[in-house]
Structure formats: C-alpha cells, structure tokens
Write a protein that binds this DNA or RNA. Structure first.
Lengths: 232, 232
DNA sequence: GTGACAGTTTGTCCAAGCGCAAACTCTACG
DNA sequence: CGTAGAGTTTGCGCTTGGACAAACTGTCAC
C-alpha cells in the first residue's frame, strides 16, 4: 500500500476543519481498502472495530429485523464517513454495510479515535454534526413513513437518491449505482411489486425511464410535484 | 432565582463525566425556568438560542408536516438534555417542544456551548453519545414503521413509553403523564380511531386499562408478546 | 449461443386500516 | 350543579396497497 496523500481528504467534509498537519496525523493511522461489488464492509451486530471514509464507489447500509426483513437505512457516497459506532459509544455496528459497486475506503481502527480526538478536538465537532445531520434525516423519514402514502414516499426517496448520487445522462438524471425495485421498496416500507407498478405508471407519464437495476428520471420537476402534492 | 446546587445534575447522565468543579462552571451559566402544562418550550423553525436539561415534568416533541399533520418525535423525561440544535450545528429547532405537565428545566444560552466544550471536552463526547442514541432510536422507529403492522407498532410504542416513563400503580404500570389516543396515533403513524379500537380490544383481553388521557398496562408481558409476534 | 437466474412486470384477489359519521362520557369551569 | 367541550368509542363503507401467482426479459457464466 502506497503512502496516503493529504489531497485524498480534500473532498471529505468531516476533515475540512483540520490543518494540514492534523490531516497528516489522521492519515498516518489509516489504511485504504478495496471492497469489490457485493462485499460486506461490516456486519450488523459485529464488533465495531473500525470506522471508515468512503473514497470511491457506493455502499448500501441495511438493517435486518428479527423477522428477517431488510430495511435500507441509507446509501453511502464518496466523501462520507461511515461505520461511526465508536464515536457514539457503541460496541457493535447497528447495521450492515455492503458495496453495491466496486468501492474504496479509508479504514481506521476504532482504538485510534480517542487519541485522534484528543489531538484534534475539531474531529469531535465534525462527528457531532455528522450524527446530527443523520438524525435529522432519520426524523424526516419517520415523518414521511408516518404520514405519506406510498407513491409520495417513493417520489421522495428517488429525489433524495438523485440529490446524493444523481448522474446526468442524455435525457435526464440517473441514480449512479445499480439499484433494484426491491431496494427502493426497502427504503420506503413497501413491496417491490408496488414500486414496480408506480415506476411503470410514471414511465407511462414520461416522468422516468426504467431499466434493469437502473432508474433514470426524465422530469425531476414532475417527480417533485408528486412528492409535494398532498393527497394527489 | 436561587443559586443552583451541584446535586441537581446528579441525575443527569449528560454531565456524569464532569468533575465537581466543571459542574460548577456549567451550572454558572444556567438558569432554571418553569414551563406550566401546555406551554411551548421552543418552536419548530425558531432560532435555536437555548439548550436545556429537564429537571421535572414531561415534554412532548412534535414535528409538523408542511400539510399540517403532526408527528410525535419523542417524550422528554427528567434528566434528559434536549433542544440540542446548536450542538449539531443547526440554526433552528427542527421540532416543537411543549410541556404535557408542569415542568422545570435548566436553560443555557446556545452561545455558552462552545466555551463550555472548550473547558470540558467531555461534554462533546456526552453530546455525541446522546445524539447517537437518538439516531439509533430513530432508526428502530423507521424499521418499525416500514415493516410492522399497526397493532405491533402501537404495542412497541406503549412498551417504550412504560420503559421511559412508567409508574407502578395498583394493578399494573401506567404512563406517568397524560396522553391521548391521538398522541399515540401520532407516534405510530396511524389514526386515533385505530388506536382506540386497538386499546379497546386489548382492554377486553385484560391487557390494558383505559381512561381519559390515561393508559394502564396490566400485563406488560402480554403486550410484549404482541409486539414481538410477527403476523399474529 | 444457450441456459439459468435475477430482476421486472402485470393481473387478480383480499384485508388492514382509514375516512366519515354519530353517539357517548368524563372533566373543568362557571 | 349544569353545561360546554375535549377526549373516546364504535359502526360502516371503501380505498390503498399487500399477498399470491405467473409470465416475461436482460445478463452473465459456461
């Protein structure tokens, strides 16, 4: 493994507040690891012995219910810190993270966290903001699940995917990683059948274009209208 | 307002890691304020100029949707820190907090936070743990809303209420503050009608006992069985 | 090239639970 | 002590969306 360069962290908001020297200290403790598509980065319930920053690729974070049902908690995009269980005082990961495409991440041993924070207090603040942001997002989702019908939830989920990981293509914006109807269903608390029906209906109206593990949104504005219109 | 005594914070986990002297520093910046039943402590969207610790009473934290629907995010119990928007880098409160019974809280100006953290780094860690715990709880709720039917969600919600704010009474455990069917509905993403029906059914089975703004659980174990049994 | 399979589409049926409506009952206040 | 109003209960019809089923179609491995 070659030495890690400072510039790697340029695109990582969590470290934005650090000085050059501090970044060197932080990087000195990290390794970079490849996670080929389909690989598991960490497993729900497993000992939280590392934390990460995603450099390339995309990860899916999934929570498994006792009954065996899966819920997609979120997708990790490049530049994000993830697997931050130590930071919040947990011994184990609350969910499973797997690569949905070939990915590359920086990895720190959890044991490094206390020393890093001691040397760079700004890190604690970063972590607090990250967790706070996720808390907000989680609450928004709770509100959606509690008050909106399925179609609007799917519209919201899709818009968020575009915002996070949208890629311009010829006739619209597509989700930049392979995603199935089932995945969308697990994000919105519904079934893949219903998602399929909804997407088909939208396709008929020219709002989106489907494909195998692929969703292209042709009319984001139209989608937005669906997402925001109470009781269509 | 009389001087605040150290012992006030004995029952506040957020400050458990602080030394006696640090606690004095922290308390020096606080005032205590009374919030009579029905009062609003802070409002969704309002400038986040304070943070709090609840000493007595109970608060309800509610999020309002653009369409005007309410969702109960959580109840604050004595000893908890709340209104921690500054800590996570927000300018405004993401929800509204109101007293569901006469309450008493310590109040700090948001501006005090940076200096407090500077003098007591353990505070940053505390805050991180608090927010982390809430994030976990929010995710559990997302999973429940996404995968469980209404009856089980209500059972889970009720069990959580008991755990947080349960009070032993003659023939069971009751929620220690006034709570309506509507409140429960807003916690579980359903309607007060459905909650009423469910509680009535449970009452018939001897699991709970209802009352105006009152819920007594006679058989917590039975409730637990409902909560955990997939597809009754 | 072809088979196997994962992912998708679509149809039919059905039940959970919501909307609407009306009656009932505490409780607080005058 | 009576009345107003908030909170609760219950009935009924209907819609949303889940369950089940079956056919279809890219894609990858051999």
């Amino acid at each position: 493994m070659s030495a890690l360069d400072r510039s790697i962290l340029d695109a990582v908001p969590a470290f934005a507040a650090l000085t050059g020297k501090e970044i060197d200290i932080v990087l000195a403790q990290a390794k970079s690891l490849r996670y080929p598509k389909g690989t598991t980065v960490f497993e729900q319930g497993g000992a939280a012995d590392s934390f990460f920053v995603l450099l390339h690729g995309h990860l899916q974070v999934v929570k498994l219910t006792p009954a065996g049902q899966q819920v997609v908690i979120r997708y990790v995009v490049p530049g994000e810190m993830f697997g931050i269980a130590v930071q919040i005082g947990r011994q184990s990961y609350p969910a499973t993270a797997q690569a949905v495409m070939d990915s590359l991440a920086l990895v720190w041993p959890s044991s490094a966290w206390p020393t890093l924070v001691a040397r760079c207090p700004a890190l604690a603040e970063s972590a607090l903001h990250i967790v706070g942001t996720r808390l907000d997002e989680a609450h928004v989702r709770v509100v959606e699940l509690a008050t909106e019908e399925v179609e609007r939830r799917v519209a919201h989920a899709l818009l968020r995917l575009l915002k996070q990981a949208g890629r311009k293509v010829d006739d619209g914006i597509e989700v930049a990683f392979p995603i199935t109807r089932e995945d969308v269903a697990q994000m919105t608390g519904t079934t893949l059948h219903t998602v399929s029906r909804i997407l088909s209906a939208w396709e008929t109206r020219g709002l989106v274009e489907g494909g195998r593990q692929r969703i292209v949104v042709r009319d984001p504005h139209g989608l937005f209208a669906i997402a925001e219109t109470p009781k269509a």
